[in-house]
Design a protein around this nucleic acid. Structure first.
Lengths: 199, 199
DNA sequence: CACCTTTGCCTAACACTGTTAAATTGATTA
DNA sequence: TAATCAATTTAACAGTGTTAGGCAAAGGTG
């Protein structure tokens, strides 16, 4: 009856192969390019076979997403354990988070549904300029007495933008933060950064 | 020769109808549901007719995205003009940005490619818990002497997370921020928030 | 008015997508 | 050997974006 186990092992292997194939496609050509038939091609089966292992494409994506979360959590835990003061632990964890996002772009994208594009790059950079200009103008004026470098103004702008865009994004993928909490974070952050401009 | 103008007007109207139809579909059923044939249905034409007005689906999305950017810029400008001190202007602009994002979810999503899902909600909330727990633990310890409420800890956690996730997102949709700028913002933000925990 | 050209739109099709039902194959069991 | 059962494939459906070709009405010209 060891054959049962052998068969189970083969099934497990197939499951893993499917996930690996999916990941490979995504790494090579982006999420847009992922399709059941392409996965099947790589593992040298036909598409319907995949449905014996996953109820659908969505399930594969969810599985990969969960894999990403586990991976990220592990890295953050490791980063924490290398430090001994609490503030250093905090910094190390967030830096690990940062590094994970760029080293595992595909994972991060599916985990938080960011940049699952529809219209390739470009324009954003163009169209954002208006908004960036609008805000930077005011930052420049506030800091005028300190003769700030353009780089510093730019940094302050991105600091504002990051936290607001970040909080919006978190809400849009609906991890339902309390409304009052949002408002609190938002105001605190804006005031905190604004204060950092003048002193 | 006024007929030329009449015809041009009709063409312009069709263009606008296409964009409006697209927007309506998206508002009703999300970006996933948008298709050329559905647009055609609404404006009571057949799908290929759309290609007389737009080179493809992507072009429609880009147009809508640009429309969103103009709308957002206008709202921020208006918000600014209602205030007279610089810090108030800054706050008003960012609050306008915030409100725009939620009142025009569909626009914001396509403008910054956020939450163009692939796997509906749920999981994120579940899987993020590990990470949230991991970080909150450390925050709680740092703040221990102040007996912070769970709500406050949660807020601090989201503050960290927002700015880091925001900065990552901005980079992932590739508005290429300089690498050194990123690092600078990241460190500043982390230290700033950490400092806010202890005093 | 008749002719020709252009324009606007549609039909039909292609190559893809996710997914399902049915048939087929091959191995396991009786 | 015969029957059963699991794994996999074939064929199909309904949907997607997109393109080529045709048709009919409108425009301009003799």
């Amino acid at each position: 009856m060891a054959s049962k186990e052998r068969i189970q092992r083969l099934k497990d292997e197939n499951r893993i192969n499917i996930l690996n194939a999916a990941l490979q496609i995504v790494k090579d050509d982006g999420w847009q390019a992922l399709s059941m038939r392409k996965i099947a091609d790589i593992i040298e089966y036909t598409a319907p076979m995949i449905y014996e292992y996953f109820p659908g494409k969505e399930a594969i994506l969810i599985e990969l997403s969960n894999l990403g979360f586990r991976k990220l959590a592990r890295r953050m835990k490791e980063a924490k354990e290398k430090e001994f003061t609490l503030p250093n632990q905090l910094e190390a964890m967030w830096l690990a988070y940062w590094d994970f996002a760029f080293e595992n772009k595909e994972f991060y994208q599916i985990m938080y549904g960011v940049g699952m594009q529809c219209c390739e790059k470009q324009k954003s950079a163009q169209c954002n300029e208006t908004i960036g200009y609008l805000v930077s103008e005011v930052i420049r004026e506030i800091m005028a007495s300190q003769y700030p470098s353009e780089e510093l103004i730019c940094r302050k702008y991105y600091t504002y933008w990051s936290i607001i865009h970040g909080l919006i994004s978190i809400n849009l993928v609906s991890l339902d933060v309390r409304d009052e909490t949002n408002r609190h974070i938002l105001k605190d952050a804006i005031h905190g950064i604004t204060r950092s401009l003048v002193d």
